[in-house]
Design a protein around this nucleic acid. Structure first.
Length: 481
DNA sequence: TTTTGAGTTGTTCGA
DNA sequence: GTCGAACAACTCAAA
């Protein structure tokens, strides 16, 4: 029998539009689908707890999809290099195919693997699959990577080449008579046990390729038409909620782009603007990876060097209040609690809570980045780092330093009936709309009627907005010039 | 090399 | 209540 091909899955947990898998199949040899849980190779940002919950279910879904096609997913744990070496020894595999990644540690690992495997005569095939545009494929006229979104976006529109439509998968995937054994998924301990805090995640999400495709279809059939405005409303279901699916590669951005383009063609003019803003958001995802690829220190160090001397104020108590949703600002607290409960936060609210942490509290953006990394099901090194730096003002094409979100105005503007706050901060639900976003401004009578004792049933604001704003502007002034 | 126009998402103040 | 301007330069990308 001809030597098998290892199809090594990483952040491409799908069967559709997976070039690495397609190439493995096209070789005509038996395919060994493999996933490696590597908590040992140093230098990686180890997955957060919410990500591990998602990973468990996504792997389960992928395994079932493979079984439905007569194959299976081999699960192995350990340092990637060692795991691949031993599987090759056991199976006599002659080739490894995988989708490339763009994080610094993953790139270093890929390079080392390619060297080692090639040296022992194993063919290594690396494919694109997580981005629309490879980071090397667009550059300024000077040949440098982009630092500003709009020109990057225009260049992407020019450069995106979707290629030919992927071939449909065969009903049966070729496999050796006996697939090498692997671990039991349940033994990996990816799910929280004591306590099991994942109830809200289970209610909210369907990890896996089928769930991802369903989410894309229902989004394109409805909400996308009004996406331009509705995407800013945390009280509505106006966003795609595709971020975790895209992060884990349950859905290829190419398929997303194609389906959205198709909707653009078939809808006539209805919803055009909405679809275009959605496409633009997909390019923001590309931009983050572009930045991380060319500036590997993005997750740790400010993109704009002047920020290295910014006078941050470390304060564990303030950080804890922010993490728990006990800042005394309803829109901030609602967001932090939505995050804790569902592993996700609406994008508008992410900006508000991030601005609050960095500008009102002067806590380093890296602390917020770390919290999001642990709690978000869509935690993505590139998006997380680029976005935190953007809010903090030290990123590429960042928000100007004097743009300090007013949490009351943001709440009143984007959650005008208070639906979002009432859902996530139920102890405030009895307040009238007029003071829901600023309970401290309610009269004693109103507070009593709503069953609220400020400082006891809900905190007083931990900082006063105007004073915090002034302090932030002063801090930013110190690093000018 | 120099110049020029432009740059995701806001807030506050004063008329 | 509404509107326009100020906020502060700075850096990027392209000509």
């Amino acid at each position: 029998m001809s030597p098998p091909v290892i199809c090594w899955f990483q952040q491409d947990l799908r069967l559709e539009d997976n070039r690495a898998l397609a190439a493995a199949l096209a070789s005509g040899r038996p395919v060994l689908p493999l996933y490696i849980l590597d908590d040992e190779t140093p230098g990686a940002w180890a997955s957060g707890r919410a990500s591990r919950w998602w990973l468990h279910h996504s792997l389960d879904a992928l395994r079932q999809a493979l079984r439905a096609r007569g194959s299976d997913l081999i699960l192995r744990r350990g340092p990637t290099q060692a795991v691949l070496d031993s599987l090759i020894d056991e199976s006599g595999a002659g080739s490894v195919a995988f989708s490339r990644r763009y994080e610094p540690h993953a790139r270093a690992l890929e390079t080392a693997l390619a060297t080692g495997l090639t040296a022992r005569g194993i063919e290594v095939k690396r494919y694109a699959g997580s981005l629309l545009i490879e980071p090397e494929a667009v550059a300024t006229k000077d040949g440098r990577p982009y630092k500003v979104f709009t020109p990057f976006y225009k260049a992407c529109l020019e450069a995106i080449d979707l290629g030919s439509a992927p071939r449909p998968l065969p009903k049966e995937l070729p496999r050796p008579d006996a697939l090498p054994a692997g671990d039991a998924l349940d033994d990996w301990g990816l799910l929280p046990r004591t306590p099991d805090w994942a109830g809200g995640l289970r209610e909210t999400w369907t990890p896996g390729e089928a769930g991802a495709l369903q989410r894309l279809e229902s989004f394109l059939e409805g909400p996308v038409a009004a996406y331009g405005e509705e995407r800013d409303r945390p009280d509505r279901e106006g966003t795609s909620r595709l971020s975790p699916h895209l992060h884990f590669g349950e859905l290829s951005p190419r398929l997303c782009w194609q389906r959205a383009q198709r909707a653009l063609e078939t809808n006539g003019r209805r919803g055009d603007a909405g679809i275009r803003s959605f496409l633009r958001e997909l390019v923001w995802r590309e931009f983050s990876s572009h930045l991380l690829f060319h500036w590997p220190e993005l997750p740790e160090a400010p993109f704009r060097p002047a920020f290295a001397r910014f006078p941050w104020a470390e304060n564990p108590e303030h950080l804890a209040a922010w993490q728990r949703g006990l800042t005394g600002y309803p829109i901030v607290d609602a967001g932090m609690r939505q995050l804790w409960h569902t592993g996700w936060m609406h994008n508008r609210v992410r900006m508000v809570v991030a601005s609050f942490l960095v500008k009102h509290l002067l806590i380093p953006w890296q602390a917020g980045e770390a919290w999001f990394w642990d709690t978000l099901v869509d935690a993505d090194l590139a998006n997380n780092a680029a976005s935190w730096q953007w809010v903090a003002g030290c990123g590429a094409d960042a928000a100007p330093y004097f743009r300090i979100f007013n949490p009351v105005l943001q709440g009143e503007k984007f959650d005008p009936q208070g639906t979002y706050v009432r859902r996530w901060v139920p102890e405030l639900s009895g307040l009238p709309d007029s003071c829901l976003h600023k309970p401290w401004a309610a009269g004693e009578e109103v507070l009593r009627a709503a069953g609220i004792a400020l400082g006891r049933t809900y905190p007083k604001p931990m900082v006063e907005h105007a004073a915090a704003r002034a302090r932030a502007l002063e801090a930013f002034a110190t690093i000018k010039g």
